[in-house]
Design a protein around this nucleic acid. Structure first.
Lengths: 200, 200
DNA sequence: TTAATTGTTAGAGTGACGTTCAAATTCTTG
DNA sequence: CAAGAATTTGAACGTCACTCTAACAATTAA
């Protein structure tokens, strides 16, 4: 006697559903408790099904990070093209760059993928691409601010490297929930650094 | 018929042996490939034996980080008490603070323990203690440099927060092996930041 | 010295996980 | 509508952290 036939409906946008569930799960319960089977359960897939789409957990995490960065990229480009002073756009850039708070999934994923011991050549290139878009946009914004006479004349590339180190440091503090690392205070520190470095 | 009796000799300093092996293994093969059984094999212990001493893998990693920091603390205090200008001691502080290079086990462990989703109250306190010793020493050094007229008069606490964010950012770039993050260049950036912030 | 107690060690067992795989089902297309 | 491609399931596998029991060694008590 055959068992009852369960419906096998096709899902809409299965990749997106999984990645969205992963972001939520990381924000709510952390990476350590994120399992392929559990993730599948959230969206009505078997573990094998999730593997069919992503091939491995590492690849799932990297694709989720890329997906998240894509959405943020849209916001960033919108912000950067606003017809307001460069300083105002720089503040918006910083606001987008920093994590929302402890366990921000985008930052958790960043840490996870970069801490892999043996990334493939291809994965490394993709990870680096994610860095470069932020970096290039920052360099271009600073260069524009300088050419408009709004910022002091510094080397935009060199400033961007230092600025991103500062943001990554504060971002790390925020995302791990280091006591004393409050988003408001961090924004204050960064603002002061910007004034010190670029103010006329 | 009983099997052959293998010697069950007591090991000397078993905890230290395991922690040293963990540091080496992380530096050479990364955290992902670090297993309790494999670690035991390196020092002639069974997996159960390692667990007997550390109770859990998380606890092993945290104790290893503490052990590593203890050794670095000795070096740091030696460096900070040298009878040389504060600036020179600050440079030595930075050199000790930053990772040696990609996969520096101290930084890998730091990232691992802070990225745990649900640390115990006690673990969190111990992790925070590791941060505080660096922070306090930095604040004291800067305050000393100011009082000797060597540094500009800034808020030492505020400077230390910003300086550590910068160091953590650059340190993260170095430890994950971000292309373009070279230790020499990082030291250059940090040196420039110090001059900008504290130079008279 | 021996007996009892405590501390140390091995290794088998457990459950959860990522991953693989073959079979079954649904969709697409000629 | 038939054939091939794409999708979906769930069982199986190997590995891992962790648990547990029994054995062994060191220390202490008598």
């Amino acid at each position: 006697m055959p068992g009852p036939v369960r419906p096998r409906r096709r899902l809409k946008q299965p990749r997106e559903q999984v990645m969205a569930a992963a972001m939520t799960a990381i924000a709510e319960r952390g990476l350590a408790e994120l399992t392929i089977a559990g993730l599948g359960r959230e969206v009505g897939m078997s573990s094998g099904h999730v593997m069919y789409y992503f091939g491995s957990k590492d690849e799932l995490l990297l694709q989720t990070l890329e997906w998240s960065e894509e959405q943020l990229g849209v916001e960033r480009r919108a912000v950067l093209s606003r017809p307001v002073p460069a300083r105002e756009r720089l503040d918006a850039f910083v606001d987008l760059y920093l994590p929302d708070g402890p366990r921000d999934p985008r930052w958790v994923l960043w840490s996870e993928v970069w801490n892999r011991s043996h990334p493939t050549e291809e994965a490394l290139r993709r990870q680096l691409d994610l860095e470069l878009v932020w970096h290039r946009d920052l360099v271009a914004l600073v260069a524009e601010g300088i050419s408009h006479g709004e910022f002091r004349s510094v080397d935009p590339e060199r400033f961007a490297v230092r600025m991103r180190a500062l943001l990554d440091g504060f971002g790390t503090h925020l995302v791990v929930g280091l006591p004393g690392a409050d988003r408001g205070q961090v924004l204050g520190h960064v603002g002061e650094f910007v004034v010190d470095s670029l103010g006329r």
